[in-house]
């Protein structure tokens, strides 16, 4: 019995490695294979010719370049919105049971909303305000900010709960106002979690597909752009673009490693 367990374990490990590595290899391979060769049947496992033209085209084509910039801007702004508002909510939740109840029920209520039920009427509202499909992506940044608040709040909640009440009271006795205490005591003490929250919210926005597809119909960000490239056939550029899109996420996993994993499960949502 122990032997069969061991065999199962080895098989599982092998499966995990193949499932993680082989697709990435194929993606990388496609991004450096000339367009014609990618249609070969049976498919080539190793490229017969190499080219960098797909990467060059990613940066040469105007649409791609502006999509990269727009995605960066949307992710940065929404991460900022979500972390600021999430920190406020998390701090109140950590210090008052009523705030905790309101916060948790709002956050879980938000999670019950299907993207599609929000995105279509939201598009109508954004259009009346004049920021639907805006070239700056500001409408999408606001939406991403809102959907990332739960992630930021849950990440920061643990950090604020860990700060002893005694320290806030000491600061109050020393003469600081509650807002001052929040800014000069709580936020600096939670700075590691704030960095984690910022990164998580950035990635959340960078990866988000549904709202981006519906809100930025023509002034696209990277995920919907990749979708159109994939569905409408440009294998090489699509693969190059996909590889570029993975860079931030891979950096984070490698750099933050274990500390990120807890945060991922705490705030995981699509």
């Amino acid at each position: 019995m122990n032997n069969s367990l061991k065999a199962a374990r080895v098989a599982l490990n092998a499966f995990v490695l193949v499932a993680a590595v082989l697709p990435l290899y194929l993606l990388a391979k496609q991004s450096v294979t000339p367009e014609l060769e990618t249609f070969a049947w049976p498919p080539h496992w190793i490229p017969h010719h190499l080219t960098l033209s797909h990467f060059i085209s990613v940066f040469a084509v105007n649409e791609l370049r502006s999509a990269v910039l727009r995605s960066l801007a949307v992710a940065a702004i929404s991460a900022m919105i979500a972390t600021v508002l999430g920190a406020m909510l998390a701090h109140a939740m950590a210090r008052s049971s009523i705030a905790q109840r309101i916060g948790f029920s709002t956050v879980s209520g938000i999670r019950l909303l299907p993207m599609i039920a929000v995105a279509i009427p939201l598009g109508i509202i954004l259009a009346t305000v004049g920021i639907y499909d805006s070239p700056t992506g500001i409408g999408l940044a606001i939406v991403h900010g809102a959907i990332a608040i739960p992630t930021a709040a849950l990440t920061l909640y643990a950090a604020f709960v860990a700060i002893p009440l005694e320290i806030e009271e000491a600061a109050w006795i020393d003469g600081a106002s509650p807002l001052r205490i929040f800014l000069t005591i709580d936020l600096p003490m939670a700075r590691a979690s704030i960095a984690t929250a910022l990164i998580l919210c950035f990635i959340l926005s960078w990866d988000e597909f549904g709202f981006a597809l519906l809100v930025q119909q023509t002034n696209r960000t990277l995920p919907p752009l990749l979708y159109y490239y994939t569905v409408f056939g440009n294998v090489g550029p699509a693969s190059a673009l996909a590889l570029l899109m993975m860079i931030p996420a891979i950096c984070v996993v490698v750099a933050l490693g274990p500390s990120l994993r807890g945060a991922l499960t705490a705030g995981s949502s699509r």
Partner: peptide, 15 residues
């Protein structure tokens, strides 16, 4: 390796 598929953006996985 086991965590990797989640770190990759969903749209890239789908592509």
């Amino acid at each position: 390796a086991a965590i990797l598929p989640f770190a990759i953006p969903e749209i890239v996985i789908l592509t």
